[in-house]
Design a binder for these strands. Structure first.
Lengths: 339, 339
DNA sequence: CTGAAAGCGCTTACAG
DNA sequence: CTGAAAGCGCTTACAG
């Protein structure tokens, strides 16, 4: 082990100041407003910082300045490239502004969300980003007490807690269902995730149903199938799809992950796609364009959602966000081979 | 907006103490050593905490206690379910111990790693988790100065910076190459990621080469192909594979993501798998078992890596890790339809 | 079982 | 352009 264990010798501002022959005030200024320090002094201080390897202590800084460079962001899962795209962008944007992202994974569960939130609250985050708009009462209380900007992602809530950035899941699902109809499919089934507090799922289901009703297409109870998150569940759902009578000719999946699972299950069952069964997804993840057959899906601007979210938070923190509380990033239908 | 903007009214310990009619010392004790407080007082304090919605300020706590409940973890990408599995487990383990994970994404770049590290250092993390064992000089300096446990994941470095948890990528690639040979393949190509500082890639390539040499199989320069991260690049690599003469009968990919990309490119080119081209991956992500044809791959115990990492860090922090600095979590060859 | 004092490492105002 | 003082919200020792 080449490590020289050296506990306690982490440089603090006083060490830098001593080395540079100034007070800590000057070091602090050299860090924050270098223009307010004479060039010669600045040089000395910077040299001392280099030599000591000094990194300011954020705990001390945020305690006294009453501002925290932390933004909390909670997502249902990180195993999904739909969310990863947004996370990546959020991370990039906030890093550039000097903030760190404290990420949490709720597993689609609002009680887990509450637990994570109460743990993260101790950091007095500058802003809080959540997925969806269903939260426990305790969570709402904490968010309210915090007094910081709260952004709900991925949907357009009628009554946002504070701010929201996303798309109309209802409208997108409605459009995709109508598109499938336009492309000639009539017996359209809907495959969903079975998490009750997932407002995206609920809205997509409603959009699907509204379109089906308007189109005069029947939706029997067996046509709406719900499964847990995970490829194998989606793949297994093909057996349920095959039992529906009369036979369905298309399945619209609430996520690309579900759609790929179904596609693989269908291929394995010897079905031809889209001949025997058309498949549509939601999200337009990287795999959707690559898989064979390529996946028809709803493109969600995940990077843009992250960007807009970061933007309105920064504007709010600087005191002046005057835009609408709910930002619509839109979506688009992408037709490929699977439907 | 139902939000009652209420800046500055976040409860602190003094508010709780006042409400409960005790001093902040007693509140602090009620939080940390409830058994040291009389039942009646404890009850009063807990009631006051509930009423005020008090959450302790971690900045203040960690400043005075000189310990931070933050663990920094840097990964090349979060878009990869191989890493997500480890991240999930790390997050679970550390949450249970009262630590928060500060996650960063290096994009396979050690300069980005350095930048993230210097930003996160200000939190005086309790431990630092990195992927791989190539780091810049500046990073090494910072890690050394920090004096905290550093764990390098995903490989078994001969000379770890401090601690390491992973598997032998060299050995695993060697085994897979020999397995492919055993299964009858002779012209085995290797598809890699083209990031120079990715020690996993380098080791896998070396393992492949060693096996090929031992088996007396030729490796011409065109048989080792490198592409950037991203499905489309892997898919496009099929064109290069087809140009190799004499024809290759198998391609061993340095990750499942690459393998799935190649598989899709091959299917699209009308090749039959494994008849025209056998494919093997590395990682055993969820998709590997589901995709058609299912993917032969190297199973990497990603959750176990996270668990072991958390375990040795916690033991070290409690003063007594006496195990080996490098923990081998092993791997296994999983044969499926693609080879 | 409870409390008074000191102080963690910085930044914020205010002087000079 | 530089510095002396106060204090952020807690925990750590030490008294009682």
């Amino acid at each position: 082990m080449k490590r020289s264990k050296s506990p306690g010798k982490v440089a603090k501002m006083a060490d830098v100041a001593a080395l540079a022959g100034v007070t800590i005030m000057t070091v602090s200024r050299a860090l924050h407003t270098p223009s307010a320090v004479s060039p010669a002094t600045l040089e000395k201080v910077q040299e001392a910082i280099r030599e000591t390897g000094f990194v300011p202590n954020y705990a001390a800084r945020s305690l006294v300045s009453q501002r925290s460079p932390i933004v909390v962001a909670l997502f249902p899962t990180m195993m999904n490239s739909v969310f990863s795209g947004t996370i990546e962008e959020l991370s990039r944007q906030f890093s550039a502004q000097g903030y760190s992202l404290l990420l949490g994974e709720t597993s689609f569960d609002i009680d887990t969300e509450e637990k994570l939130l109460s743990g993260f609250m101790g950091w007095r985050p500058a802003a809080i980003i959540l997925t969806g708009s269903r939260h426990t009462e305790v969570s709402r209380k904490m968010l309210e007490n915090s007094g910081v900007p709260v952004v709900e992602l991925w949907n357009l809530p009628r009554d946002p807690f504070d701010l929201a950035v996303g798309l109309s899941n209802h409208q997108a699902a409605y459009d995709m269902t109508r598109s499938l109809h336009e492309w000639g499919y009539r017996r359209i089934s809907f495959l969903n995730l079975n998490y009750p507090n997932n407002d995206r799922s609920v809205d997509r289901s409603a959009g699907y149903r509204q379109a089906m009703t308007e189109l005069g297409l029947e939706v029997t109870p067996d046509m709406e199938i719900s499964v847990p998150f995970g490829l194998e569940h989606a793949s297994a759902a093909v057996q349920q799809l095959l039992k529906i009578t009369p036979k369905v000719d298309a399945v619209f999946c609430s996520s690309d992950s579900l759609a790929v699972g179904v596609m693989m299950g269908a291929l394995r069952a010897g079905l031809s796609i889209p001949g025997d069964l058309a498949i549509a997804g939601f999200g337009n993840v990287e795999l959707a364009a690559t898989v064979v057959p390529s996946l028809t899906t709803v493109d969600v601007p995940r990077a843009q959602i992250g960007r807009e979210c970061a933007r309105i938070i920064m504007e709010r923190l600087r005191g002046g966000y005057r835009g609408p509380p709910v930002v619509d990033c839109g979506y688009s239908i992408v037709r490929r081979e699977s439907a």
